[in-house]
Design a protein around this nucleic acid. Structure first.
Lengths: 103, 103
DNA sequence: ATCGTACTACGAAGATCATCGAACTTCGAC
DNA sequence: GTCGAAGTTCGATGATCTTCGTAGTACGAT
């Protein structure tokens, strides 16, 4: 089992500037949309993206370090979950607003 | 008088990706906060920023072209206004959420 | 008409960022 | 233990972006 949570900022450490910068990138926005559609969590590799695995890892790290998502290990896989509660508490309406965009 | 509105995207031309990218920059976020505090509009030069006038103009252009703010001339001055209605209609809660950040 | 103010446009320089391939780690399966 | 699968880390590269100074435009005032 040995599920481990990767390092991420506490709620009060999250900065709006980093969150917005993280979200303002097409690939990362795609990731966030995929996570929002699967509240139970998504395996990184399952999200279809027009980039290689290493670039994908890079984007996931940015999102995690910004506090947008949380990642925990599950065997060789890594499950990512949108930190919706934290973001909603800090910036009420922000995530909902972004997701309501007509793509 | 000859008040003229500078070119800006229509509401339906605004893309969430451009908006987030525009907001994900410290100087521009400062500008947006200043505009939000003055719904009547703010003269560009009145906002205190740690950059020169040309850089300021650059950031204002980015924000305007993303659809975040609207600028119209008033003599030699340019008044900028946050496009709150449009943004609220497109991404309800987004601006409010961002502004509710504890800085 | 001349001047000063407010701002923009145009490169250029430096920093940051997205992207990739290759090498490495970790875990489960056989 | 060996293999493969999933994912990360590490440079390197090319693109994008922030920043600046300079030059230029537009307008009001004198």
């Amino acid at each position: 089992m040995a599920t481990k949570v990767l390092p991420q900022p506490e709620r009060e450490e999250i900065r709006v500037e980093s969150v917005l910068q993280a979200l303002g990138e097409p690939v990362r926005l795609t990731i966030v949309r995929a996570l929002a559609a699967n509240p139970a969590g998504v395996c990184c590799g399952e999200i279809e993206l027009p980039v290689t695995a290493s670039t994908r890892a890079h984007h996931l790290r940015i999102l995690r370090e910004a506090g947008v998502l949380s990642t925990h290990t599950d065997g060789t896989k890594r499950i990512s979950i949108l930190r919706r509660e934290d973001l909603e508490a800090l910036y009420p309406g922000l995530i909902t607003g972004i997701l309501s965009a007509k793509q």
